[in-house]
Design a binder for these strands. Structure first.
Length: 678
DNA sequence: TGCTTTATAGTTTTT
DNA sequence: CTATAAAGCA
């Protein structure tokens, strides 16, 4: 604590740390100690007498923010660490909006719609809006809506053309959200920016708070995120330090603008630019291969990674007849490496690929071979129905206008309010332009219902009222009140009724109990956060606790199976990059969409994950949609330097050791395939 | 209301 | 081929 040492840093890192004023652009290549520099810089600022409360560091993920806090805590006192603002973009915006959103026309208790909530709303709007012959995929619509929100004209308060289906869906979607006193993830950014732009007194308040800004993973920022930084930045010149690597920008399809980092000078003139090129992760064979690939990208800030680790083993390129043999090769080589002592355990390996479906295949093969694996990313976060149910009840208590939450629980457990009734209530809420909750309490509407239905609505309203009061009571334990609510509505028996087997029932019940326990713990730890704070935290941090626990409890070392996207930021002693085929990497679609550069960066990210050994493979034939298709090796392979590359036939490891003559044959084959370049 | 049949498409994913 | 979603059916 209270100790960090500048002389532990290399020259470039130190330069980045001590440049505390004005705009700073830190170009941090893969594995160059980026997190170390950011955390050291924060510690240095504090050591220089800057008040921790005046420092703001923004990251993309909760994981990154947490990691940063942990590492800063090792250099700065506990009291000072607490005063720092280390936050994700979205969490920062929530904080801002919870205090100051009112001038924009939302109430402070607004609900936050996550991706799933938002998709549900969009789906409902499409069915209501689209003509019979018009079709629009909800997922595609959602992506377009998100894109529109990053459009400067929309961000400035404009609306898209109402006569196109997408435009109409967008406009209705926005109106519905506002009617429900709700915002989606993009709105968090959009509204925060609008608030700062349009309300000078609010802007001043937040500028007074933060004098030193730092942004991590700047290459992944979108337009709104840059706007937010620009709005918060102040002073002449402003103290804005961004850290990133344009070569690792792989989220363009999600709205990230590489131009934010490529044209940083345009947004913040005369920055100090520091390049971190000394890599502490990989061998030079791996770095050389990575450098040779990425230099083919036209729009980039040139960087050349190097390390003091020596050349290391050659990078292997393995053609396999098909994906079965590709898998068999990997398994055989992993076993061989463990036998040879080149790897400690299966946990030293990562298998990295472009598409999740490739992971299914390799997972099957590994399991068959009796090798444990850990699948990172993918699905699994959608099957928490029971948690969503309970959260919907809480959401209703916090914001009765939240229709999505209300719809979820209005007939759960069944209280005689079926689809037809709800449809009528929805229709009434739409015509009267009020929330569903107001509609079902409107005498004009209730008068049209049968006495039975009317009683059901009234009873439901009383229930919500009663528990809202209980929740607001001074000294109320949220955990207890929610538990009482679940008891009162008979939630567990009802849930049990819907479960197939006893294990499912038990699992779901455990999930809910865990949620309640988390709620209790949250209230203990952050008594000021309120129930709202708990819900916000869950909405903005979808990373499940159980996953962490599962990782922690894992007894057997496991091979990591991961997509290239999810692998960013991670490292492994041994990396297998699968499916280096034209159409897969670069993906076919990228060629149509003109985003091959981003695919090249994706491969670059993959290569730079490896510490000591890297093996890349491709299939000559691959089963696609049920039938075998012949594949062409990825065009990226031609760009790789041959200096540290060796060609290995899959059969070489599967069968006998390679003889010298056949090895020569392989080299000439490789030369032929790779052409004259490199 | 819940289950089976049929159509359809088929990257990458965090907040 | 296979997962998933909408549609149809009991």
């Amino acid at each position: 604590m209270g100790s960090f040492r500048l002389f532990d840093l290399n020259d470039a890192q130190r330069a980045a740390v001590v440049q505390t004023t004005g705009p700073v652009l830190i170009l941090a290549g893969a594995g160059t100690g980026k997190t170390r520099v950011i955390t050291a810089r924060i510690a240095y600022l504090v050591a220089q007498g800057v008040k921790p409360a005046n420092i703001l560091a923004v990251t993309f993920t909760n994981k990154a923010a947490g990691e940063m806090r942990e590492r800063v805590a090792g250099m700065v006192s506990e009291g000072e660490t607490k005063k720092l603002t280390l936050s994700t973009f979205h969490a920062l915006c929530v904080r801002l909006l919870r205090q100051d959103i009112e001038p924009l026309g939302w109430k402070k208790n607004f609900s936050i719609y996550d991706q799933g909530d938002s998709l549900g709303l969009i789906r409902a709007i499409i069915t209501r809006t689209a003509a019979k012959d018009e079709k629009l995929e909800p997922g595609a619509a959602q992506a377009l809506v998100s894109k529109l929100k990053n459009d400067p004209r929309i961000a400035a308060g404009g609306a898209p053309n109402d006569s196109t289906l997408v435009g109409a869906v967008f406009n209705r979607y926005q109106a519905e959200l506002k009617r429900m006193n709700a915002v989606d993830f993009d709105d968090l950014l959009l509204l925060a920016v609008r608030l700062l732009k349009e309300h000078p007194e609010v802007r001043q308040k937040w500028r007074d708070r933060y004098h030193y800004l730092m942004v991590d993973e700047f290459q992944d920022t979108n337009r709104l995120q840059l706007d937010l930084v620009s709005q918060l930045a102040h002073g002449d010149p402003p103290n804005v330090c961004v850290v990133g690597d344009d070569d690792q920008s792989i989220y363009g399809w999600r709205g990230a603008e590489v131009s934010n980092i490529l044209e940083f000078e345009r947004h913040f003139p005369n920055p100090a630019v520091v390049k971190l090129e000394q890599n502490y992760r990989s061998t030079n064979a791996i770095l050389h291969t990575a450098n040779s690939l990425i230099k083919n990208n036209p729009r980039r800030r040139p960087k050349t990674l190097w390390s003091e680790h020596g050349t290391g083993d050659k990078v292997r390129l393995v053609p396999a007849p098909n994906e079965q043999e590709e898998a068999a090769y990997i398994i055989a080589e992993m076993r061989q490496k463990i036998t040879d002592g080149l790897a400690q355990s299966f946990a030293d390996f990562a298998v990295v690929y472009r598409m999740n479906s490739q992971g299914d295949f390799i997972e099957r093969h590994l399991k068959e071979a009796g090798i444990e694996c850990l699948r990172v990313g993918g699905k699994s976060f959608f099957d928490r129905r029971e948690v969503k149910d309970v959260l919907a009840y809480i959401a209703c208590l916090l914001n009765t206008d939240d229709d999505s939450a209300l719809l979820r629980i209005i007939n759960l457990p069944p209280r005689g309010l079926g689809d037809t009734t709800i449809d009528r209530a929805m229709a009434h809420s739409i015509t009267t332009r009020t929330s569903l909750f107001k509609a079902i309490n409107d005498p004009a509407f209730l008068g049209t219902m049968s006495p039975k239905v009317r009683a059901a609505f009234q009873e439901f309203g009383v229930l919500l009222d009663e528990f809202e009061t209980k929740m607001l009571a001074v000294g109320a334990s949220y955990e207890e009140v929610v538990a009482r609510l679940l008891d009162e509505i008979g939630y567990f028996p009802e849930m049990r009724r819907h479960c197939k087997g006893e294990d499912e029932a038990l699992r779901r019940e455990t999930n809910v109990r865990d949620l309640l326990r988390d709620l209790g713990r949250y209230q203990e730890r952050s008594p000021d956060g309120g129930l709202r704070g708990f819900i916000d935290k869950l909405t903005l941090d979808q990373e499940r606790e159980d996953r962490k626990r599962e990782d922690f409890l894992a007894q057997t070392p496991r091979v990591t199976l991961i997509t290239l996207h999810a692998a960013k930021g991670l490292e492994f002693p041994h990396v297998y990059l699968l499916g280096l085929e034209e159409g897969l990497l670069p993906h076919e679609r990228s060629k149509v969409e003109g985003t091959v550069d981003e695919e090249r960066r994706l491969l670059y990210v993959g290569i730079t994950r490896a510490r000591r050994f890297l093996t890349m493979s491709y299939c000559v034939n691959r089963t696609k949609f049920g039938s075998a298709m012949s594949c062409t090796p990825s065009s990226f392979l031609k760009e790789l330097s041959r200096d540290h590359l060796e060609l290995i036939q899959a059969s070489a490891v599967l069968n006998a050791p390679v003889s010298e003559t056949s090895a020569k044959g392989h080299f000439s084959q490789m030369r032929e395939m790779l052409g004259k370049s490199g």
